[in-house]
């Protein structure tokens, strides 16, 4: 670490980043906080009315029953996406990583498994939309297998009882590979002589897993869980494209609710207020992730 002779030098290096932050980041964050206390339908800010905490009361405390109901449903849907995704992805990825180890074709399989992760995006959400059509591949597959109770005649995304399941399936499809690759990298980095030494010393298979494998798998699980939590609560694009939050709000998430409130209903104040409460939620969840991003400077 150096102390520069000219004490302004360190700051010179920061100038471009700080200017951008002031112009784009800070202004937006500040204005968005201000907006959450106003009633404003856009265009000219002189028409905005200061209303204190009314926006927050509208969707948190039931001053506006429909908005409140929409909000809590959206939070619930975000939570469902997070929980189901984590509960499915962690064990499945771990099992797949175990099976993948010491397989002859491991590198080929790994390449195939990696595809959904980097390519997942708007293009793939349209593919899923097609696969979930009433006469699409999903229904046809289970019909052909004779598992008719798993088919959805109106299409997975077209029925309010199943639309969220469709969204969660695409989350899992795109999210599993990342976790799988991390687990696989972790497992293969364990020196096999550790296991040999342990079994020579009389450790059982269970003890080996508990004492050697688990300590390594634990931090990876934490990273994966934090990523999935964050991703689930910031969900927007796949929901917006595949269902638009419908039918009848059955797959609405916070992201689509804020978008709709601001850009379709022009209720910018309410949208900002909902946005900041969702920030509080993700912030609380991400306090864990701070640990993994901490470096001393």
């Amino acid at each position: 670490m150096a102390t520069s002779k000219n004490k302004w030098v360190p700051y010179l290096f920061l100038i471009p980043g700080i200017l951008l932050f002031l112009g784009v980041g800070l202004y937006s964050v500040g204005f968005s906080i201000v907006l959450s206390f106003y009633n404003w339908s856009g265009i000219d800010f002189s028409t905005a009315r200061f209303e204190g905490l009314r926006n927050f009361r509208r969707f948190l405390l039931g001053d506006d029953p429909i908005v409140t109901q929409n909000f809590y449903h959206a939070v619930l849907h975000n939570a469902e996406i997070a929980v189901v995704q984590i509960v499915v992805v962690v064990p499945v990825a771990l099992v797949l990583a175990f099976v993948l180890q010491n397989t002859k074709l491991a590198s080929l399989y790994r390449t195939v498994y990696f595809l959904p992760m980097i390519v997942s995006g708007v293009a793939m959400f349209y593919v899923w939309k097609g696969l979930f059509e009433p006469s699409g591949a999903y229904n046809s597959l289970f019909h052909w297998l004779g598992l008719n109770f798993l088919t959805v005649p109106n299409g997975m995304l077209g029925s309010s009882s199943t639309s969220l399941i469709g969204i969660i399936l695409t989350f899992i499809w795109g999210g599993l590979p990342g976790t799988l690759i991390l687990y696989y990298a972790g497992l293969t980095s364990i020196d096999s002589s550790l296991y040999e030494a342990a079994s020579v010393d009389g450790a059982t298979k269970a003890q080996q897993i508990w004492k050697i494998t688990w300590p390594l798998v634990k931090p990876i699980t934490l990273i994966a869980v934090v990523q999935m939590l964050n991703g689930s609560f910031q969900a927007f694009e796949n929901v917006y494209i595949m269902t638009g939050g419908g039918p009848a709000g059955s797959s609405e998430v916070i992201g689509t609710l804020v978008y709709r409130t601001a850009f379709l209903n022009n209720d910018y104040g309410l949208a900002s207020a909902i946005g900041w409460v969702s920030f509080a939620i993700t912030g609380a969840l991400a306090i864990f992730s701070f640990r993994s991003f901490k470096i001393d400077i």
Binding site: S32, G255, A262
Partner: peptide, 8 residues
């Protein structure tokens, strides 16, 4: 979250 600061 990206969507929070979108409006401003």
């Amino acid at each position: 979250p990206g969507v929070t600061t979108l409006i401003p």
